[in-house]
Structures are given as structure tokens and as C-alpha cells.
Amino acid sequence: MPEAVRSALAIAGKDLRLEFRTRTGLLSAFVFAVLTLLVFNFSRDQSLISTTDLAPSALWITVAFGAVVAMNRAFIIEKEQGAIDALLLAPVPRGAIYWGKFLANLAFVGLVEALTLPLFVLFFNVPLGPALPGVVLTLVLATIGFVAVGTILSAMVVRTRFAELMLPVLILPFMVPPLIGAVQVTARLLGGRPLTEVLGWLRLLGTYDVVFVTLCTLAFSAVVDE
């Protein structure tokens, strides 16, 4: 296994171990997601807004904000005791550090989504069955995109005084394109439309992923080096 891949997996493994030991980020993100779904569920007037109209937006707003909460911790754990410097001192390419954090964030956000999706079905009573593979594919594609950007932004803001406030402010503009695509795809799939009808949106999400994962990998060194 190439050294860079081994290093990235070691960093991701360390982050997962830390998270499962403390459960701080996961628990906060999951509770936040549940509360958001509850607010959406109980604040709508069912006689005015149909479930199928509201459900896609509710799902993606929940996922987006849950993800921001989960990603906020990515570099804060490196800032405590200066561990980020130990990562930068190690004979590891900067890109491998980025990928380690990116993979760990993907796992966190993926887990939050996996826990949120059944609650979404429960609260909104949407017929997810036939649409499930398409919705899962959309979740994967959209999540890769905004986690790629969120990972580099969390590295960027960690040296600022208000890191936890800065990340949501900075990441939301970058989340707009994948969120628009994801909401469009989800709405059509939940409305019983075939997957072929949303291929254009899925391609857009895939392109966003390739562009931003590549850009963020290349730019990471400039973000973390002094």
C-alpha cells in the first residue's frame, strides 16, 4: 500500500477512534438533525404544504446542518495540544493529511445521514422504497462534495478565534450548488419519476465532487503551511 494512502488511513482511523471514544461530534450532529426534522414536521400546515413538496427540502436542510456540526470538530481536535503541528512535521504529504481528515468526515457525516434517513421516513411518511437507491446515490454524491469543501474550510478556520462560528458562514455558499442538485433529484425520485430523468443533476453532483476534491487536495498545503 502506498505510504500516502497508509498515512491517510492512519489519520482517518485515529479520528474515528477519538470520535467513537468521546462521541461529542456525532451525538451533537445527530441530536441537531433529529431536532431539525422535528421542527419541520410539527411546524408545517399539512393542509397548505404537501409532504412531497416539503420532504426533499427538509431532508437536505437537516443533512446540511448536521454535516456542518459534524465537520466542525475535524481540526479542532488537532488544535488542542498543538497536534496539527505533529501532523505537519510527519513525513506525510499534505494531501494525505487532507484525505485522512476528509475520509473521517465522510464517515461521520455518512453515519449521521444513515441515522437520520429512517427518522425522515418516519416523520414524513414518504414512500422511500423504490426511490431508495437513487436517494442513497444522491446522498453519497452530494455529501462527498460538501464534505470535501468543509474539510478544507475547517482547516482554514481552526487558527481563527471563532472557528466554530466561522465554518457555517464560510461553507454555506459552497453547499448551495450540491444542495440545489440534491433537492431536485430527491423531489423527482420521491415523486415517482425514473432515475434517468435526473441523470443530468447526478452528473452535475459528480462533476462538483471531482472538481472540489481535486482542488481541495491541491490547495490544502497552502491552507495549513505557515
Binding site: E3, R6, S7, A10, I11, K14, R17, L18, R21, T22, I77, E80, Q81, G82, A83, D85, A86, L87, A90, P91, V92
Partner: peptide, 21 residues
């Protein structure tokens, strides 16, 4: 310290060792 508070001393050293191959 460059250490992770919630990892043990041994886990911290293992992690460092993995980064250095």
C-alpha cells in the same frame, strides 16, 4: 504536547509510528 488527550499514551505513540512508517 502534540498528543491527543482522549487517546492513551500507547495509542498516541502508535499513531506517530504509523505516520513515520
Amino acid at each position: 504536547s502534540f498528543l491527543y488527550d482522549d487517546l492513551t499514551a500507547r495509542e498516541n505513540l502508535h499513531f506517530t509510528g504509523r505516520l513515520y512508517g
